[in-house]
């Protein structure tokens, strides 16, 4: 039973919920370091180590970390591992350390790590959490290596430093420069949209498939990154901040209407909003909101694992 669960976690991270191709998390490092396949692989493996270890520790400490201070606690744990990994890289792989530069310490603010801590490790036993981290990390590594390989192939004509393209090929330099990263990612998201639409037409459930960092922030540690905060087409997901913006941008008379609509739609949440005068409080509410969603998502997994435990 245990092997099955481990394998399931690895499969989940690598394919079913691949953080880059499916969930579209952690786009900053994805774009920044994938100038070559080697850099992508290095960044991916570094993130994997941090992700697996921080997932393990957070899972071990999950009964001791109070709910209210969990985010700072997660950040401290993650930052400690990032510092360790950075020192190890400096000592043993100085070339990679120079190539990745400031993006190594910036692993701390990678959406994937805080996202997994919040949505999986905080609610599950250590072993599945460890393998969830490894699976997600490997999925991230594979994705980064692939993107790096494509950019290196088009931009330099090489993969992992080996010449692949024929001699007559003129490298399209722009693909290893900054704009190329945006173009490659744009193509990637477009392909994902295409597949998603086909799957949806066949009646498959694509609700878990993200599209761009800005749409799946429930699983994302970056609270500052969401389209749903400002997108009028996607209301309800974060009523507090939506409304706060509405109050700021809309005329006073209209605001009253907006408030009424919001109340009609979500009375309970609107009450919370009325209480939340300060944005600090609003933020807490948003976090609580997030947690609720995350917990509801995590609950089935937890149940599965409990069942597994019983079976053992």
């Amino acid at each position: 039973m245990k092997e099955k669960r481990v394998a399931e976690r690895l499969f989940n991270g690598l394919i079913k919920e691949n953080p880059t191709f499916v969930l579209m998390l952690g786009m900053c490092p994805t774009l920044a370091v994938t100038t070559s396949a080697m850099n992508g692989l290095g960044m991916g493996l570094t993130t994997t180590v941090v992700l697996a270890l921080s997932n393990l520790i957070i899972s071990l400490l999950r009964k001791f970390i109070p709910n209210r201070v969990r985010i700072p606690a997660f950040i401290v744990i993650v930052a400690s591992f990032v510092t360790m990994v950075q020192l190890l890289l400096e000592a043993y792989l100085p070339a990679l350390n120079t190539a990745l530069g400031v993006y190594i310490p910036l692993i701390v603010v990678n959406c994937i790590i805080l996202g997994r801590a919040e949505s999986f490790a905080y609610h599950n036993p250590p072993l599945p959490s460890l393998f969830d981290g490894i699976g997600m990390g490997l999925g991230f590594s594979v994705a980064l290596t692939l993107i790096g390989a494509v950019r290196e192939l088009l931009g330099v004509g090489e993969v992992f430093g080996y010449r692949v393209m024929p001699q007559g090929y003129t490298p399209i330099n722009i693909f290893v420069l900054a704009p190329g990263a945006f173009f490659v990612l744009a193509a990637l998201v477009a392909i994902q949209n295409f597949i998603k639409k086909k799957a949806a037409a066949k009646g498959k459930d694509v609700s878990k498939v993200g599209s761009g960092c800005s749409e799946d922030c429930t699983n994302c540690g970056e609270k500052g990154c969401s389209k749903r905060f400002y997108d009028a087409d996607a209301p309800g997901k974060n009523p507090v901040i939506n409304e706060a913006v509405a109050i700021k941008t809309v005329e006073p008379e209209k605001t009253a209407e907006a408030e009424k609509t919001a109340e009609a739609e979500k009375t309970a949440e609107a009450e919370i909003t009325a209480e939340a005068e300060s944005t600090a409080e609003a933020k807490k509410t948003a976090e609580a909101d997030n947690t609720a969603v995350v917990e509801s998502e995590a609950a089935p997994i937890e149940e599965e694992i409990k069942e597994d435990d019983k079976n053992e």
Binding site: C111, C225, S226, K227
Partner: peptide, 10 residues
């Protein structure tokens, strides 16, 4: 590529 999320989101 720093601060990409608010750049795309807001």
């Amino acid at each position: 590529f720093l601060g990409l999320c608010p750049f795309l989101g807001v």
